[in-house]
Design a protein around this nucleic acid. Sequence first.
DNA 1: CCAATAGTGTCTATCAGACAGTATGGC
DNA 2: GCCATACTGTCTGATAGACACTATTGG
Lengths: 219, 219
Amino acid sequence: MVPSVPVSVDLVVLTVRCQALSALVWRRDNPPFLRRWSLAGGFIQLDEDLPDAARRIMTERAGIPGAGTLHLEQLQTYGYPDRDPRQRVLSVAYLCLAPDLPASEKAHMAWVPVAELTVMAFDHRRMMLDGIERARAKLEYTSLAAAFCEPEFTVADLRRVYELVWARPLDPRNFHRKVTKAEGFLMETGETTTRDGGRPAKLYRRGPAELLHPPMLRS
Amino acid sequence: MVPSVPVSVDLVVLTVRCQALSALVWRRDNPPFLRRWSLAGGFIQLDEDLPDAARRIMTERAGIPGAGTLHLEQLQTYGYPDRDPRQRVLSVAYLCLAPDLPASEKAHMAWVPVAELTVMAFDHRRMMLDGIERARAKLEYTSLAAAFCEPEFTVADLRRVYELVWARPLDPRNFHRKVTKAEGFLMETGETTTRDGGRPAKLYRRGPAELLHPPMLRS
DNA sequence: CCAATAGTGTCTATCAGACAGTATGGC
DNA sequence: GCCATACTGTCTGATAGACACTATTGG
């Protein structure tokens, strides 16, 4: 006889907004962990693949518009027997990176700066920290930072992503040189932004490159 | 009502032996995939954490001596509904890196060079390739290569690990400079090897460093 | 001596960090 | 003009790749 376990998918959805790396969370309205912050999640259905379940939960539970276009990757699986006090649940965490989306229309869902999420339900804080560390690491050697940006963005937008995710300032000039010379990272649109009090910046789109060679090290 | 799924743990156990990167596999003696190569695996027990299940399967199913001391990390979870034709099974794959161990005493288990494992049962080839890619990537920025070596090893032993895992030759002199100058990677034992026809090499142990700064890029 | 492997030194191209200087907008 | 931001150029130190050279063993 083979033991079976309920399996859920939990989403670590990260974005950069209001000068802070933020996560999409909701306030639990039921025990256990009543009124604690929690990640959006749900049980997988029979005959549903894991990425499909993650997309479904992004749409149905988290209320994220355009869930199909956002970056999504499997993070890790959490299976400690007591992680849910009611019954054993295996949880497959997914990491989603999003630009500054409009607030979810779902009740109780909110973008909260990760620095404020010191206490969460279940092991969701561990999942969130693992997701942040994955994002931090991947900014080093991939062009993933653009997943946090609008379709068209400036080099300064991209730099702000790096600075907020890595939580450290970067030299704007060296950063500019690095990303504009990285083959396939950025594609010029020909347009420029107009802002207050500064030279207009060129607008770029994501280039075809997925990897950054050589990587941009946090050192 | 919450659907439950049987959950198994499958092991991608890699080693370097006989001048080849090899995996620990066994020949299935039952349908489906009768007589195909398969990874060692088993179902998790109730109240058993995932890493504990992985260690148990290393000992019981794979017959690996000293399973408690080897490097073990979670690789990925595979959940496509049809991945097992009999019933839906969720599989959490673990990656284990081992030195050249004696052959397992378990029947049907064997070390096979990964280049020969072109056809495997279930999605085990995908798991193995994901494990190899994880190992390749981690050699770049961690000191993990030593996990493939005996407790005491030479710089040449370590270089052979890199060369076989990356499947490309490295300059012995530049490699030597890189690893001996990397802070905390290697600790001299004071001993040397004696070999035929060559200057004896210094023996090293693993140092305390986990990360390699700056990384050794495959480029 | 020679063969073989271990280990050191040197040159050079590349690249990151630091930062001066120029360009182009709003006020 | 002044300020702010975007962008370019230059210097320097660290490092990887290429490879000459020395060291230490066995035969």
